[in-house]
Design a protein around this nucleic acid. Structure first.
Lengths: 211, 211
DNA sequence: TAATAAACCTGACAATTGTCATATATTTAA
DNA sequence: TTAAATATATGACAATTGTCAGGTTTATTA
């Protein structure tokens, strides 16, 4: 079964709609299959011992959630919560494991995908440990524009709450808010209500590079 | 080809010896295959834009390095440098890709392994972003004991330089040294020359849990 | 062995980030 | 619509962490 075939399977399934804030699955659960995002965006996060929440990655259209746990036959280490209204479909693990066992191409394709995820995770580790909160905030804005685009007025299509931002960059919500204020004052970004737009990409890039 | 068979292949290869400090490969290189650690330990690290080095993980006996890049057909995102004298063997990428294409079991096995690495990477992300430097230092000591053991006097078998420690936990070398001094003064660890041993596991665990 | 280099250590201080308290704005629900 | 809940914002301060500038010790090598 190729990726395209799998997509067909997934398209034929009845998909589930979720409202912003609803959970698709929670950390520690056993998953009976994987979830494929048809529309909207989900945050994949993990609770640390001290009660703080860390958003490890975001998943949007076409991306699959839960495959790591299903493949490793473990309970999931992450929670998936909708950050916008969503439509997801479910693919039972039996289909996954059957296809894995019988079709080497599929396995290799999944493998490539996971190799890619792993590289991204490595990059996140380096960013988290070597960059300042301001630099991480700047990267978050650029990442969101690159991956989810902006509207006709130049505001990010995917709007996260301040708390979500703080959970992405790994900082206190207050610090996050302060940095947003500072960036706005300096003209790096613009805001309108809770919408945020990039006003000066160059300045953000300079900040990331340490200038 | 099963994992055991692969091991046989690798064992039959002429292996290469490396002295502490030598590089197996460097960030950005194209790899013609993967490296299997037969003896010793290697650090897998990445340079961030600001010139700081981050150790993403350590690889020891039986572990494979470079598979992510070979599978994704990308240049490697990490450097591998020996932190002790080492013996590694090389498996050409042709063998890997042939085996991947023809043997679904092998692909699934590699997949499981990569799923495991990905989970660990997620955990590292959370640790890096949500824990203090002291907590991360405490975790590093416990991790090193768990994975590489201690000698008859209770000192960690794998002894890293202070700079390596700082690159593992993502902090300045001076901060790292100060924390080592503090832990020693408080009786959490003991030192002898550059050797470090765990003196009070309970206290370290309490610190990690925020007490 | 002596000279040199590298690693380790410490103090002083600055910069960054977190915490707590509180105020305002916005959203949600009764 | 009004009340309650939630999200956003800011000040004041403390705690953490980084930087620079020296030291000392340990390892390397000429």
């Amino acid at each position: 079964m190729s990726k395209e075939e799998l997509k067909k399977v997934s398209d034929s399934k009845i998909s589930k709609k979720l409202k912003k804030g609803e959970a698709i699955f929670k950390e520690g659960e056993k998953l009976d299959g994987v979830f494929c995002v048809r529309d909207g965006v989900s945050k994949l996060s993990k609770l640390s011992e001290n009660g703080k929440n860390q958003i490890v990655r975001l998943a949007s259209k076409g991306e699959v959630m839960g495959q790591r746990a299903v493949i490793a036959e473990e309970s999931t280490n992450l929670s998936a919560i909708a950050v916008s209204d969503m439509e997801v479909c479910f693919i039972p693990k039996e289909i996954i494991s059957n296809t894995l066992d019988t079709n080497p191409n599929f396995a290799v394709e999944v493998l490539r995908h996971m190799a890619h995820d792993l590289r991204e995770a490595d990059d996140v580790i380096v960013n988290m440990s070597q960059k300042t909160v301001k630099q991480r905030m700047a990267e978050a804005f650029l990442y969101l524009r690159k991956n989810y685009g902006e509207d006709e007025d130049g505001f990010l299509t995917l709007s996260l709450s301040r708390e979500d931002y703080s959970n992405v960059v790994g900082t206190a919500t207050e610090s996050c808010i302060r940095i947003i204020s500072e960036f706005k004052k300096k003209g790096f970004i613009k805001t309108s209500g809770k919408k945020i737009g990039i006003a000066d990409e160059r300045k953000l890039l300079d900040l990331i590079d340490g200038f």
